[in-house]
Computed example of a mutant assay.
Amino acid sequence: MKSPLHILIGGGTSWIGSNLRQRLIDKGHHVTTVDRRSLGRSDSINWNEFFKNSAGQNAISLASKNMNMPVDAVVSLSGAPIMDKPWTQARKNELRDSRILATEQLVKHIMHAPEASKPVTFVGASATGIFNGIQQDESNRFDENYAGPFNHEEFVSKLCCDWEAASKPLEETSTRRVIIRISPVLSKIRGIVPKLLIPGGVFCVGRIGSGEQRFPWIHIHDLVELFISAIENKGMSGVFHGVSPQCPTQAEFSSLFAKKSGRVAVPLPGFMAKLMFGERSSMLLDGANVAPLPKTDECGFKFRYSDLETALDDIFCLDYPNNTRLSQKSQFSQKPDQQS
Score class of each variant (00 low, 15 high):
Ser282Ile: 10
Met283Tyr: 10
Ser210Gly: 15
Ser244Phe: 02
Glu225Thr: 03
Ala251Pro: 05
Ala265Gln: 05
Pro294Thr: 06
Met276Ile: 10
Tyr320Val: 02
Gly300Ala: 08
Ala288Tyr: 08
Ala265Leu: 13
Gly270Asn: 02
Gly270Tyr: 02
Met236Glu: 05
Gly242Arg: 10
Phe303Arg: 08
His221Val: 12
Ile218Arg: 07
Asp313Gly: 00
Cys299Met: 06
Pro269His: 08
Glu279Gly: 03
Asn233Ala: 12
Val239Cys: 14
His219Ile: 12
Val264His: 12
Phe253Ile: 03
Lys302Glu: 14
Glu232Gly: 10
Met283Val: 15
Ser237Tyr: 02
Ser229Arg: 13
Pro294Asp: 03
Lys295Glu: 05
Leu293Glu: 15
Met272Ile: 15
Asp307Ile: 08
Leu226Phe: 04
Met236Val: 15
Thr296Ala: 04
Ser282Pro: 00
Gly270Asp: 14
Ser261Thr: 01
Ala273Lys: 01
Phe316Asp: 02
Gly287Cys: 08
Cys317Leu: 06
Val264Pro: 03
Phe271Thr: 10
Val239Arg: 10
Phe271Leu: 12
Leu226Asn: 00
Arg263Pro: 02
Phe257Gly: 01
Ala311Tyr: 03
Leu256Ile: 10
Pro248His: 07
Lys259Ser: 13
Glu232Ser: 12
Ile315Lys: 00
Glu225Arg: 09
Ile315Pro: 02
Phe277Gln: 11
Val243Lys: 00
Cys247Ala: 14
Gly242Lys: 04
Pro292Leu: 01
Ala288Thr: 01
Ile220Ser: 09
Lys259Ala: 09
Arg280Glu: 06
Glu279His: 13
Ser281Leu: 11
Leu318Thr: 00
Gly287Phe: 03
Lys274Tyr: 01
Cys247His: 09
Asp313Cys: 00
Leu256Asn: 08
Asn322Gly: 11
Pro269Val: 09
Glu232Cys: 09
Ile315Ala: 01
Gln250Lys: 10
Phe227Glu: 02
Lys260Cys: 00
Pro292Ala: 03
Met272Cys: 08
His241Ser: 10
Asp313His: 05
Phe271Met: 08
Ala291Asn: 00
Leu293Trp: 05
Phe240Glu: 09
Ala288Gly: 00
Ala288Val: 06
Leu256Gln: 12
Leu223Tyr: 13
Ala291Leu: 07
Met272Phe: 13
Gly238Phe: 07
Val290Ile: 14
Asn233Arg: 14
Arg280Asn: 13
Phe301Glu: 07
Ala288Gln: 10
Thr310Gln: 11
Pro216His: 12
Glu298Arg: 15
Ala265Trp: 10
Cys317His: 08
Pro267Gln: 05
Phe257Leu: 11
Asn322Phe: 14
Ser254Gly: 01
Glu225Met: 13
Gly270Lys: 06
Glu279Cys: 01
Gly300Val: 01
Asn322Val: 11
Asn322Cys: 13
His221Lys: 12
